[in-house]
């Protein structure tokens, strides 16, 4: 068996502050295969974005990795010197941020930003880069790309800008794209288009995607596998159909009860995950044992004393004593 494209092992990320060392990611492990789309879901503050930033090597100080390893195609990238990592960032791993309105530099034409990225990562002439940029803009669905390439970001709508961002990420033909809530900032009517575009691009090019979202409808539509995060840990990870249809972790079950379809969303449902009573604990007050135990209706003594490991259960892996013991 060949190595998975991305492998995250026992990842631990801490944000030290004056009083304590807050553990934002605690012993998280998962893999993404070539061409696979992994969905990452969980409540706000669960650690989804921090996981993405850790993979990119872009954790905001004082945040830093205090344990675990990240491998791309078998090679460790978390310990790489910055100038080597820079050749992976943007080249082999691309990242799409939440807000396309602010992701593009307002003072440069979009074409210049695309060719700049290409020329930083590959030895290619300005003219060739420009020709490829136009082709890319066409591929992400921008009409009249040979004119739009000279537009400034403010001259494009939100949906168009997110397409440009996708073109920017794709221009170096990355093997993995980390998309952190790529549609949250967009109009509901545009969201489905962008999601469909990401799926099509990934499928056509065989690119792997880690798709971070609040939106279970989106996961159902595009992901192959899904990981449910809670308080910096993975509660359940498995094939999307199984996790969505028959979630095993009580937290995952609660989430799935709250799935709005894209159709329902268009009708006004905001798609946020709100059905489980209570709130996720603050990083400074994560309970002993299973982090979910105070909100869990099925907690037993062991859940309050011992942290459950992520163990195989049916087709998935689940971190719950009720399921795996």
């Amino acid at each position: 068996m060949t190595a998975p494209l991305l492998s995250v092992r026992n990842l631990r990320v801490e944000f030290p502050n004056r009083r304590a060392r807050l553990v934002a990611i605690d012993d998280v492990s998962f893999e993404i295969g070539r061409g696979e789309i992994l969905g990452l879901v969980g409540e706000s503050g669960a650690g989804k974005s921090v996981t993405g930033a850790a993979i990119m090597g872009l954790l905001e100080p004082p945040g830093h990795m205090t344990g675990g390893e990240i491998r791309l195609d078998g090679t460790r990238i978390d310990t790489m010197p910055i100038d080597q990592l820079r050749r992976i960032r943007g080249k082999r791993i691309g990242m799409v941020f939440q807000d396309p309105l602010t992701s593009l530099n307002p003072v440069y034409r979009i074409g210049a930003q695309i060719t700049e990225t290409m020329r930083v990562h590959a030895n290619i002439s300005e003219a060739d880069a420009r020709a490829r940029a136009i082709a890319l803009l066409a591929e992400v669905g921008i009409p009249a790309p040979e004119n739009r390439i000279d537009a400034y970001p403010h001259e494009l709508s939100g949906g168009m800008r997110q397409r440009v961002v996708l073109a920017l990420v794709l221009c170096t033909e990355p093997e993995l794209i980390i998309a952190d809530e790529p549609t949250t900032a967009l109009d509901v009517s545009v969201q489905a288009q962008i999601i469909a575009l990401i799926k099509a691009l990934a499928r056509n090019r065989g690119t792997s995607v880690m798709l971070i979202t609040h939106d279970m409808g989106v996961i159902a539509e595009v992901a192959d596998r899904v990981a449910v995060m809670y308080a910096g840990r993975i509660a359940e990870i498995g094939p999307v159909r199984d996790v969505l249809k028959a979630p095993q972790h009580p937290y995952a079950r609660g989430l799935m009860g709250a799935i709005p379809s894209l159709a329902k969303k268009a009708a006004g449902h905001d798609g946020r995950l709100t059905l489980i009573p209570g709130n996720m604990p603050r990083l400074s007050a994560i309970p002993e044992g299973c982090a979910f135990n105070p909100r869990c209706g099925e907690a037993i003594d062991r859940c309050r004393a011992e942290r459950p490991s992520l163990l195989p259960a049916a087709t998935s892996h689940v971190a719950c004593w009720r399921v795996t013991s």
Partner: peptide, 24 residues
């Protein structure tokens, strides 16, 4: 965000500072 995005695109830090940040 556009500076973060520029970093995520793997641009060299000097280029981010002097081309992307300084002009803004």
């Amino acid at each position: 965000d556009y500076v973060k995005f520029a970093r995520a695109r793997g641009l060299p830090e000097s280029r981010i500072q002097f081309r992307h940040a300084l002009r803004n």
